[in-house]
Nucleic acid binder design. Structure first.
Length: 237
DNA sequence: AAATCCTCCAACCGCCCAGAC
DNA sequence: TGTCTGGGCGGTTGGAGGATT
């Protein structure tokens, strides 16, 4: 099978962008907006692949980008979101105005990963390093369902081991407990529909969607539509 | 001063998905 | 229904520049 290449590679530049190329791209997008990336290079007089133009614009030239160091708050938010979303850099970037997925991905790999390791936390599972594999695997399974169940025991105890006191990373994603659902009913006087994991992340109608009901009476966690899932107990320390 | 190592990040690659036909 | 195309995403790489030997 295979696919046709996205552009004629023989006649395209590669590697670092020059100032002139940047200027051309900026001028074109200012004049015409972001349109068809495939045809943009030719229209703008650039010997670049459309994908390359898109990447350059999104990651570097966009006027709303926030350049410079990440703040502590941004660090912690990225960690929280990564524990929830995994390597969904675009979703994480969506919660950090002015930051791009590529920038966050790079920052994660160069800084935060190391930071977590130095805290004794596995950057992949967000569990303490040296935790027995079985329970680590179990925690990965838990991540299929959403609920942050640890608000009450934030800094303590996972199998008797004390966790990092300044960061609550024991995030669980699981359906709301029956008790909690009942509380919802009591509060609202209605029962809520159940959303699948895909929908809980705001990607309704995806192939992973397994929702029974389409009524969405949820609320917005960090901008993600969450249905009845228990995001409210996510705490930033 | 030169060689080597390390870190960081811009950019590329290949795959996936949704929409058009 | 199947195929094609363009956009988007995550993983990976290459090279520039700084640190160390």
């Amino acid at each position: 099978m295979g696919r046709s290449p996205c552009c004629e590679k023989a006649h395209t530049n590669k590697g670092a962008w020059t100032k002139e190329e940047d200027d051309r791209l900026i001028a074109y997008i200012r004049a015409h907006g972001e349109g068809c990336w495939r045809s943009l290079p030719k229209a703008a007089g650039l010997l670049r692949c459309g994908k390359s133009c898109r990447l350059r614009w999104i990651n570097y030239l966009r006027p709303d980008l926030k350049r410079g160091n990440f703040t502590e708050d941004e660090d912690e938010l990225i960690i929280k979101l990564h524990s929830l979303l995994g390597n969904k850099w675009s979703l994480i970037a969506g919660r950090l105005p002015g930051r791009t997925d590529n920038e966050i991905k790079n920052y994660w790999n160069t800084h935060i990963r190391r930071k977590l390791v130095s805290r004794g936390i596995d950057p992949t599972t967000h569990r303490p390093i040296n935790e027995p594999p079985s329970s680590a695997a179990a925690s990965q399974e838990d991540a299929k369902t959403i609920s942050f169940s640890n608000a009450t025991n934030s800094s303590k105890i996972d199998g008797g081991r004390e966790k990092c006191p300044d960061l609550n990373l024991d995030l669980r994603i699981s359906p709301p407990s029956a008790q909690h659902q009942n509380q919802e009913v009591l509060k609202t006087g209605t029962t809520s529909s159940t959303l699948c994991f895909a929908c809980s992340l705001g990607i309704q109608n995806s192939k992973d969607c397994s929702c029974i009901s389409s009524t969405n009476s949820g609320y917005d966690f960090l901008g993600l539509k969450t249905g009845v899932l228990d995001y409210r107990r996510l705490e930033m320390k």
